[in-house]
Structure formats: structure tokens, C-alpha cells
Amino acid sequence: MSAARRAPPWRRRLLGRQNQNLWFWVFVGPFFAGLVLFIYVPIAWSAYLSFFEAYNTVSPTRMVGFANYTDMLGDPNFRSSLTTFLVFAAFIVPTTFALSLATAVLVARTRVAQAFFRSVFFLPTACSYVVAALIWKMSIFSGVRSGLANTVLGWFGAESVPWLSVTNPPWYWLVIVSARLWLQVGFYMILFLAGLQRIGPHLYEAAAIDGATGWKAFRHITFPLLRPTSTAVLLLLLINAFQAFDEFFNILSSFGTYPPYARPPLVYLYYTALGQGQDFGHGSAGAIILTAVIAVIAVAFNRLFVREAD
């Protein structure tokens, strides 16, 4: 900059403008280079690999056209992994949303011990999915008598349930879903609490004068005004549901094997691409199909929730 100041005016202007471009890349360059190298290049490479037969190699020579795609779409296991995701998302997204909102509303209206309740619900955010899976699998829902769930059943004279080793009824869903709820509800509650704080108390006072309190006030004031928060929370929950891997892997797999049911897409891809076969061709095709599905859902979500709000 000092060089620019000493230079004659025409040069200063030129230098100044050049400097601006230069400085933009000094600031943004490192991040952008990393973004390209670790996100965009892998996606492009993946798209390339998806048209090749690539077992154990990333520089394949045999092109197979769309065969990997048709294989994946024709593979009942891959299709069932997509169904698994849809069922899982259809349950976990609205449930987490409702529970987080309910806790936020209850905590916000509490005067005594508010900080305590907030802390307790938020604390699980400190836990990883691995730790939660461990507690759920080995202590709460362990199939033996010493597990908490079976102990409680025992108090009522009921038989022990092998929570993770039966598929009919599919009790493992209860295990997986409750673990995720415990981990997530507190975080989204905090986001809702922040949203609730932005709603001015005078609105409720005015509504109370008109006779709207309780559920009516929630329905006509709280919920509509929480819209930006609600939209963001829904989107984050959806993205998180799509990435479900940790708890499925840790709760259901044992000694390197995974049961044939309850495989969300990432678990399926993990075993396809990084398992014994190292099948990068099919794994990449699956990743591209998943990306496409996410893009479609994101666009639909945008149409449904974001546009409407404007």
C-alpha cells in the first residue's frame, strides 16, 4: 500500500486495483484452494470413477459407461438403503423438531431453575455418537438381564427383550432413534430458545388482552414468528439424517460385520467402497446418486419452505 501512495496518480490507481485483486486472493485463496482440492476435485474424480471398473485402484482403464449406475439402481441392497434413510428421516426429523420445540417452550417459560434445565438438556451435545452408542448398546438396551431396559421390564414381571438381535418386531429402531434424540434435542432446543427470545413480550401482552393465551398464543404468535428458526432447524435435521452413520455403525455392527437390515446409504457405501472389495467404481456411482437425491430434496425443501416464507 505504501508503494501505491508514493507512486504517481495513474500508477497508484492501477496498483491499487491490482492490489485489491491480489489481496482478495491472499485472504480467500487458502480456503478456496482447500475447498477445490478436498471437495470439488474429489467430486469430479468420483464422477469420473463412476464410469469405470475400479476395484482396488483409483486409476482404472476399463470404461463401463453407465453400468455402475444401473448396477447400483438395480441393487436391492442399495435401494433398500435409500428406503431405510427415507423411513428414518420421516420419523426422526419431525420428532426431533417437535421435542426440541416443546422443551424450548417449556424451558423459556420457566423462571426457577431455568439454567439448570437448559444445561441438562444441552449436556448430551458434549457426547459423541460413539459414546452414546456404547451406553445404549452395552448398558440401556443390552439384551441380557443386567441392561437397564430389561431390568425395568423385569420390575413389571415382563420377559427380557433381545433389543438388537431380533428383526420382528424391529426393536433396533427404538435403540437407534432414542440415541439420536438424546444427542440432538438439546442442541436444537438452544436454537429454538434463541428464536423465542427474539419475539417481543409486548406481542404476548397484546394477545393476552384479546384473550389469546396458552395454545392460541403459541399457534398464532410463537409458531409463525419462529418461522426462520424452524426452517433452519428442519434443514439441519434433514442434512444430519442423510449423514446418519455413526450410531448405526456402532450400535449394529459387531466384529467387522453388519447385519443385512437397517443399512442407511452411508453405511452401505462404506462397505461397498472401503470394505474388502474396495469397489470404487460402484461406490462412486452410489455417491453421485446420493448427491443427486440430496439436491432434489434440497430444491423441493427450498420450494416448500423458503419461497413460501418470502
Binding site: F32, L35, V36, L37, F38, I39, Y40, V41, P42, I43, W45, S46, L49, V58, I239, F242, Q243, F245, L266, L269, Y270, A273, L274, F280, G283, S284, G286, A287, L290, T291, I294, A295, A298
Partner: peptide, 20 residues
């Protein structure tokens, strides 16, 4: 380019990223 990559869950790129 930054916001578009937000829409792609990082976990979906784990296969190609591992390859890289």
C-alpha cells in the same frame, strides 16, 4: 462455490476424498 458445497453433505464425499 462456497454455499453450493454447503449443500453437499461432507459425508457424501468421503469415498472420493478417501481416494484423493
Amino acid at each position: 462455490a462456497v454455499t453450493a458445497s454447503l449443500l453437499i453433505p461432507a459425508a457424501v464425499t468421503f469415498v472420493p476424498s478417501f481416494v484423493l
